[in-house]
Design a protein around this nucleic acid. Sequence first.
DNA 1: AGAGGGCGGTGAAACGTTTCGAAAATGATG
DNA 2: CATCATTTTCGAAACGTTTCACCGCCCTCT
Lengths: 339, 339
Amino acid sequence: MLHVAEVARVSVATVSALINGTATVSPELSQRIEQAIRDIGYKRNAIARSLKMGTTRTIGLTVPHITNPFFTDVVSVIQQAFDRAGYAVMLCCTDEDLNTQDDQIRLLLDRMVDGLIVARVGDGAILKRIVDDANVPVVLLDRVCEGVDTDTVVLDNQRAVFDAITYLIDLGHRRIGYISGSFDISPMHDRMTGYREALQAAGLPVENELVRFGNFHEVDGYNATMQLLSLHDRPSAIFSANNPMVIGTMKAIRDIGLSCPEDISVACFDDFPWSDVFQPQLTTVAQPVQAIGEQAANLLLDRLAGNRDAPPRKLALKGRLMIRNSCRPLGAIAQSISA
Amino acid sequence: MLHVAEVARVSVATVSALINGTATVSPELSQRIEQAIRDIGYKRNAIARSLKMGTTRTIGLTVPHITNPFFTDVVSVIQQAFDRAGYAVMLCCTDEDLNTQDDQIRLLLDRMVDGLIVARVGDGAILKRIVDDANVPVVLLDRVCEGVDTDTVVLDNQRAVFDAITYLIDLGHRRIGYISGSFDISPMHDRMTGYREALQAAGLPVENELVRFGNFHEVDGYNATMQLLSLHDRPSAIFSANNPMVIGTMKAIRDIGLSCPEDISVACFDDFPWSDVFQPQLTTVAQPVQAIGEQAANLLLDRLAGNRDAPPRKLALKGRLMIRNSCRPLGAIAQSISA
DNA sequence: AGAGGGCGGTGAAACGTTTCGAAAATGATG
DNA sequence: CATCATTTTCGAAACGTTTCACCGCCCTCT
């Protein structure tokens, strides 16, 4: 900029004024400056600008796994939204690990991101502290966090699973296996509650042996399913509370020599692009990923636009049960249908 | 830092020296400074540091679509690699659009990223100019670029498709439909060449009506497949040169009332996590995503470590044909198998 | 005892912007 | 033509670091 100013024979203040339109500069000087900018190929240094302005026009986004199709889609939507608004987004994957998450949030905060969208991992205590003394707006995505009172976008997980399990019950299933992720994130807790309540509402017992826990990965779903299928009285249906784990479920079913839906019905959380192309077409709870991503982006953009003092806004969106052919009717229901 | 210096009754230079370990500071002062840092909750401002140092420890990464599972995986691997090295990564999705790509690369360059990994889109001319006058190392991913002479990691696309088509031919297929993305990116060109050469090597004609072009999206695959299937003499197999398009292919096959592999065989580029769980299990060309991501990261990290003058390095990795059950033997071969 | 060499510490310049108050130029008015 | 108001331009400080040249000080060696 100094160089431009010299070539155009003006002061740097004038160049800055022209570039930012913060003051009127005469046509004559404008032209000289613009010419100089072109000649030199000048590009404004956003780092220096950020230092002075105290804003980077960059936000941080952390998700547990980008390969989980839910997060893939949400990241994609959020990236587009901020791109439109002229923001860059720094992406971090925490790999469901608490320490990694802390490090990454600190990394982002160090770099003076203007805001943060976090699909958090683990206990919220550390996150709360980090967020409190960093003075940037934060929106929590997918997972609420006790004690962190900030904008939030989540799914109504309890209701969504309630509906899915009720659907299975209506099909005649009585023993329904349930594979959960660990309880330290809210959706897993809420989904489990939905499972329990659906059973109770139908007068069915909640049996501990039918509930298994895994760490969100395919292999966990595989192991959990193996355990469920080797029960003395095995379930006739399995619901997996997350998407990567259901792959393990399907592989376990295959490896044990059973088939879906003939021998066992399967449903899971999170839709994916291939779900209605291959057999079996998986019955899933689809999250409104577009809406979730957009709402999260909007909440943050609104804060960034200056609306700092509004009370925290909590959005809970509705999931949608996508009924396909991976769950079959059982018992009396099946007979009345085939009759 | 000024504040810390005051509280610890030392100069800022000493604080800086301690934090960075660039000079020895006496145990006494060290302790006072560390205490002050804790008391105040001081965090070094990475922006000011970047301005002074001329490095941001941030890299830019642009991909056409993060929802394409190939790019999802590669992004994930790259993110992890740079995370380990203490770099942040800014992610941009260009949506296969040239202008978007230009804007985003400029955005990244403005923000003074230390390096760039680009899965480019469209013609390389503008990219070349942008990259030339920005003075940062660039590695090209997945797609080479005429005239831009820089580090590159690609797949040996021609060979990979050659093998896949040859496999179909060996199964007895003679009329093989081919759905390509547009030719302005190198992989599509090379894959097409592989298709042609495989046919020629087998003494088969390359028929124009069997080759269709799309714009990488599911809907393009759908339309192209519809066209292929309504040919007077329709192909017995279809190869899709990209992954999202094959979803369209499968939907078109279903909608037209055919089934795979009984009526038509299907294979495609890019493996995905569900490919061997559902029916049909798709035969795919798997790219070594882990290696591709790591190599790209390593090339860039090496440049960032100071190795600026080494001549451009071009890596071509091998794909792997994952044979599953979406392609069936035909004619004499089928009979000899069933005999 | 004086010279030389490390060591620990500091002041101040520099990175490339934005911005504020003041100065200069211009135009309008009496 | 002097005065005032308005518009345009500018100088310099500031943002929060790093770094370089320099300065005491103490130790060691002749």
